[in-house]
Design a protein around this nucleic acid. Structure first.
Length: 459
RNA sequence: GGAGACUUCGCCUAGUCUGGUCUAUGGCGCCGCACUGCUAAUGCGGUUGGGGUCUUAAAGCCCCUCCCGGGUUCGAAUCCCGGAGUCUCCGCCA
């Protein structure tokens, strides 16, 4: 995979090709946004993008893209014509030879060089086009508000903050109940790691199993993917190039092909279907996966991110759907309701927030967070993010379906949602269900799995 | 880690030794049509995926695609080099 130009990551490190492993011939993956839409209705694209980017910057990027697109098509026309000529000549040569006449050879040396020149020009233009395109985020959905965090809207609330006389935070509770060994976790993995112990490990596992059971019941297929993925999967999900430096990479020595530890199993589920044409009757295709998630996360700590709230490795179950475009709305609602039913099943107070354009991740048209109440900080903390990517990820991953009746292929829509991340539910459970005597009540749905209805302090 | 076999348009498969008429064979599946009271069977036709061009659209035309990348050649599924993957055997190993 040689000729692709290096791309720059956010922190300025030059990395070798994080692009898709396809020929740079303008294949299906060459656009992240629909190039035809940019050609036909640039205004609409610019307006949508301006919800999350500086308008001047958007215009500059679109100018560049359209210029490269034109250049690309001009080169292709030229190259195709040249190839056609040479094919015709080769055929004439063969015919002449068969007929016994002396075949004509026409200055092949210079011609070949000329064609090679054009081809390398095209390679370069396409690499630049792809780089420019892959920097562009998805077009936010119509109902998503422009702006940053301040434009997020709470759209739903479930339950009430529990009345707790003297709130103890989850770190204190975990220690007192013997659930998490922070010190030994650091001894093993360095700062940013912890170790669940004893009943803490059981609680963690019970949560995961509760989710898994519910997803199976809801018709999602259970996947346990590799945790080490090829770069192409990171690109497809839209995590690369932007977050290239935020994941753990193996060194060239041990992984010559470039592999990284997945930051979420979303990357794996999407990547699993790269380059495939899904059977239309099987859509929506529903799958979920459990994996730990590995993230570098910037160093430093906030008072409201103590304990297990933010770390380099945490457990998450991820639900995912591949749908027809017209099924996406319903799927989003279904996934949200499903994820929320898990939190409700645990009896936790939470709210649903519709994220603004600027606060949603770049690959998504629309994102809703499920945020659970943390008594110790008096804030809500995200335990799930449910998103609709439209065809953005499907384009990058080349995942299509066939139009019924017609034989045209189209890109599927993808949706994903955490369901759920335990590292924040765990503290929320401890804090919301703490009792005056220092014990913590176990949510009913976990009691069978835990073999107890209450966690009591170690003596 | 070592040795060998292999990778062809959804699946199976012919073609690779001996480069051109491969513009890729045949079967299965799928789609359409015909026949039949219905089903089955049969017959005929279609069926890789991309890109470019033209068009209101469709059709057409052109280019690429025989695992990937490079090379040789007027011309590569076919020859050469590098890589990936699969299988078999051997070795090693939590």
């Amino acid at each position: 995979m040689g000729s692709r130009s290096p791309s720059r990551t956010e922190r300025g490190a030059t990395v070798a090709s994080v692009g898709p492993p396809v020929t740079p011939d303008g294949g299906v993956r060459s656009s992240m946004l629909d190039m035809e839409l940019i050609r036909k209705d640039r205004e609409a694209v610019a307006t949508a993008l301006a919800k999350r980017l500086d308008p001047a910057e958007v215009n500059r990027a679109l100018d560049e893209i359209q210029r490269l697109d034109q250049e690309r098509r001009a080169l292709i026309t030229e190259i195709d014509a040249e190839r056609q000529r040479r094919k015709a000549e080769a055929r004439a040569y063969a015919q002449a030879k068969r007929a016994g006449t002396e075949p004509q050879v026409t200055a092949p040396e210079t011609e070949r060089k000329q064609l090679a020149d054009l081809e390398s020009q095209l390679d370069e233009v396409q690499a630049r086009l792809r780089d420019a395109m892959s920097e562009l985020p998805n077009l936010p959905s119509d109902d998503v508000l422009p702006g940053g965090k301040e434009a997020n809207r709470v759209v739903k609330t479930f339950g009430e903050p529990p009345a707790i006389e003297k709130v103890r935070d989850h770190v204190e509770l975990s220690r007192a109940l013997g659930l998490v060994d922070y010190e030994r976790g650091v001894k093993l993995g360095g700062s940013g790691f912890w170790m669940y112990t004893g009943v803490g490990a059981r609680l963690e596992w019970a949560l995961l199993n509760y989710f898994i059971d519910q997803h199976i019941r809801a018709g999602y297929e259970f996947l346990l993917p590799p945790h080490l993925l090829l770069d192409s999967a990171g690109f497809a999900a839209g995590q690369f190039p932007k977050f290239y430096d935020d994941v753990y990479h193996l060194d060239r020595e041990s992984a010559p092909r470039g592999q990284f530890l997945l930051p979420t199993s979303e990357t794996a589920i999407l990547g699993a279907y790269q380059d495939e044409i899904l059977e239309t009757p099987k859509l929506p295709l529903k799958a979920f996966a459990y994996t730990p998630c590995y993230r570098r996360e910037s160093a430093g700590s906030h008072s409201d991110e103590r304990g297990t709230v933010r770390g380099h490795q945490f457990n998450k179950v991820e639900i995912f759907q591949f749908t027809l475009p017209e099924q996406a709305d319903d799927a989003l609602e279904e996934m949200l309701a499903h994820a929320e039913s898990l939190v409700e099943g645990l009896g936790l107070h939470y709210q649903r927030t519709l994220l603004s354009a600027g606060d949603s991740s770049a690959s998504m048209k629309k994102t809703l967070d499920i945020e659970v109440w943390m008594p110790s900080t008096g804030k809500y903390k995200e335990v799930s993010s449910v998103s609709w990517a439209g065809d953005y990820q499907a384009r990058r991953a080349a995942i299509r379906y066939r139009e019924p009746g017609g034989k045209q292929t189209r890109f599927v829509h993808t949706l994903n949602g955490s369901a759920l991340a335990t590292s924040r539910l765990f503290p929320a459970i401890l804090e919301q269900f703490q009792q005056a005597d220092g014990s913590v009540l176990i949510p009913e749905v976990l009691r069978d799995r835990m073999g107890t209805d209450r966690l009591t302090p170690l003596r």
